[in-house]
Design a protein around this nucleic acid. Structure first.
Lengths: 211, 211
DNA sequence: ACGTTAGAGACACCGAGTGCCACCGGCAAG
DNA sequence: CTTGCCGGTGGCACTCGGTGTCTCTAACGT
């Protein structure tokens, strides 16, 4: 419907945003991601076409792909940086703190967002946890997280990262974190950090009430 | 290469399989799934085209989709039945056994494959855990499993299935099961049931060595 | 022999993703 | 000022997964 909302702009328009101080690339990418998030939220992931996103972002289909790689990637922002920060936190953790608390702490800290970023985060996570296509894609992204955690546990334990314990800790802690995001999103109760801590505590206790 | 292996069969061939007693549909579907598994294993998921699968299965592109729904679905066989069996096992579990052991037991039992089925299972799981596209798709399938487990825990605990504990148990047990499949596939050591039990034990103990 | 019906194939279409080329603007060297 | 390079861009064409529609055919009951 109404493919003439932003698509009928003359091709040579300089686009209403002259702010390109430190890097025109980052600016375009940010515009694309903002447009995508907005449209996905309003119409649903599947309903939105790349062409529509590109139009709203004031660029072309081809350029969209040059910047974000895939439709799903438009939602994830700088997730690679997120993973790096997690890795850095784990690397920085001293050997005086036990392995599991170190992982928990790193998870909580890397997800300590500023108040102002929470709306965007909520939007992102709602899409990722709700839209089937994004839910699917998330697995690939989370694999990187698991890899980082497994490597850390392996290092601390002197094991191979592909051994059972490192993989198990990585997979279950990440599952717990995702679950925490779910309940946080559903709005019941407190902050994201609280949800994470609750989930991690239950996990570390091995669900004593259920044994 | 060699797109003339099974594609050069005349269109009106009655197909070499006259055994269609209880349902001709199942026969075609089985042929499609076998062809897909074989081709994926040999050339990789992304490299194989639907048209190739259809050709090897002795049918058409359109019919492929009528039977399996999507390229990824061709790998999963009757997973819906798998999930139903899990649900049935949980429903049948008495209240005398604790929640966590009940979930563990159901997982082990539903994954108790006959010796003869192990090669196919290995092939399936290798693809699902290895190929990025299938890894992604798996999340959608596993969501059904999580739903079943969460509902069971919720019932036993008198909670809502969307509450933290049910979701957490579902997510972490499934993560543990997947990890067990990984190590089982890598070939180190014993049977699938052993791998599952080891992973579940570690999970239920809350990784005591790491706290 | 009849019509009915389910399964199958052919065709056309859409959207995601990719490779290729041509263009344009800035920028340094002449 | 001109020349030539170069990064970002847009247009185009193509592949492939997936879907809707139409037609055909073979099996079935009457």
């Amino acid at each position: 419907m109404s493919s003439s909302s932003a698509a009928d702009v003359p091709p040579g328009t300089p686009s209403p945003v002259p702010l390109r101080v430190g890097g025109g690339r980052a600016g375009t990418r940010a515009r694309i991601e903002r447009a995508a998030l907005e449209l996905f939220g309003a119409q649903g992931f599947e309903q939105v076409t790349i062409e529509e996103i590109a139009a709203v972002a004031g660029t072309s289909r081809r350029t969209f792909f040059r910047h974000v790689g895939s439709k799903a990637d438009a939602v994830w922002g700088d997730f690679a940086g997120h993973v790096s920060r997690l890795a850095a936190l784990l690397d920085a953790a001293g050997d005086d703190v036990a392995v599991l608390p170190a992982v928990f702490g790193a998870y909580v800290e890397v997800n300590d967002y500023a108040e102002a970023d929470l709306p965007v985060l909520r939007q992102r996570m709602r899409l990722i946890l709700t839209e089937p296509a994004l839910q699917a894609h998330s697995q690939v992204r989370y694999a990187d997280v698991d890899e980082v955690v497994a490597r850390y546990v392996a290092r601390r334990r002197g094991q191979d990262p592909s051994a059972l314990l490192p993989r198990l800790v990585a997979a279950t802690t990440r599952a717990a974190a995702t679950t925490a995001f779910e309940v946080w999103l559903s709005g019941e109760g407190g902050s994201l950090a609280e949800a994470l801590r609750t989930a991690f505590t239950q996990l570390a206790e091995g669900f004593p009430d259920l044994r």
